[in-house]
């Protein structure tokens, strides 16, 4: 256990922060039936990264994150535009936008001679939690040592900042987010500016997705946007408890998944470990499955009817 701090602490922190940030935003996406947006953003990251590489000529995390974020924001804007102008439902708008942007990214990649970034694109899409080794983390006391803290992988700080921003946004604009998700017409009449907060939520989703991708990969992000909030919805009929359940499920998935990935195979007698991000996604899926089977508010126990 002596190398826990060096090898496992930062991956667990990053996994947990990513899971929390995704789940927090995911609650509102699930309420608005827009959870696919996480998937959409994961496709849109590609043209952003390629464009960033073409513009700067370097393969570095900051320009790539910036490019991915801009691309994700453009995509979120386009999705809103297609929804309004075309009057189509959100799922269809997302489908149109993210497949075309993904195709644009592939075209850009193939025609620009930027294929050298290919590996990094893959890394951005798959992430690699296990690589977040804290070389200076020689024990718990390192947490108090400034020089050791300076060697913490930068993804850790980035995700902690993102989590802080998301938390602040949700707490500060809770009423606006809830009103806009539940009844946009009413929200507009009382001046809760639903269109503005809709855009802000999309922006935040894009930022969370991009930063979480870098650290934990797209599979985990897509799972974390959907699974904890969806499972939490099956536990309660009220929103605040739902958000609390989703956060608990997010932590459980991140920590449980990481531990299982690292030690599960050993317990089963295998030598190597499995991908932590993958295992975290699996655990979140299992939690959702359990909630579907045993959640007190699962479908069938509540009516879905609209009034005549």
């Amino acid at each position: 256990m002596s190398d826990f701090v060096m090898l496992s602490l930062m991956p667990m922190v990053v996994g947990t922060a990513a899971a929390l940030a995704c789940a927090l935003v995911g609650n509102f996406l699930v309420l608005r039936r827009q959870s696919l947006i996480g998937d959409a953003v994961s496709h849109v990251v590609l043209p952003g990264i390629v464009a960033a590489f073409l513009l700067t000529g370097v393969v570095a995390p900051i320009p790539m994150l910036a490019g991915a974020t801009v691309a994700a924001i453009v995509a979120a804007g386009l999705i809103a535009l297609v929804r309004r102008a075309g009057g189509v439902e959100p799922g269809a708008a997302m489908g149109v936008v993210f497949t075309s942007l993904f195709a644009a990214g592939v075209l850009l990649l193939e025609t620009s001679g930027a294929r050298s970034v290919h590996l990094d694109v893959e890394h951005a899409l798959l992430g690699n939690l296990e690589s977040l080794i804290w070389f200076e983390g020689l024990g718990w006391s390192a947490l108090l040592d400034p020089s050791a803290l300076a060697a913490v992988p930068p993804q850790v700080w980035r995700l902690i900042v993102v989590l802080a921003i998301v938390s602040a946004f949700v707490v500060l604009f809770w009423k606006e987010l809830v009103l806009g998700s539940f009844d946009p017409v009413f929200a507009a009449t009382v001046g809760a500016r639903p269109a503005l907060f809709d855009a802000a939520l999309m922006l935040l989703t894009a930022v969370v997705a991009v930063f979480a991708f870098e650290a934990v990969g797209s599979i985990l992000v897509v799972a974390m946007f959907v699974c904890p909030p969806a499972a939490a919805r099956l536990m309660t009929d009220r929103l605040v408890p739902q958000v609390m359940w989703s956060l608990a499920f997010a932590v459980l998935s991140a920590v449980g998944g990481y531990v299982l990935a690292g030690y599960g195979p050993l317990w089963l007698g295998y030598q190597s470990s499995v991908s932590a991000a993958g295992m975290i996604a699996v655990v979140s899926g299992l939690i959702l499955a359990a909630a579907c089977v045993a959640g007190p508010r699962r479908k069938g126990t509540r009516s879905i009817g609209a009034p005549a």
């Binding site: 998700s181 539940f182 017409v185 009929d237 739902q242 009516s303």
Partner: peptide
Amino acid sequence: AAVDWDFPA
């Protein structure tokens, strides 16, 4: 009211 009647409220 064009609301989602499934909303946790």
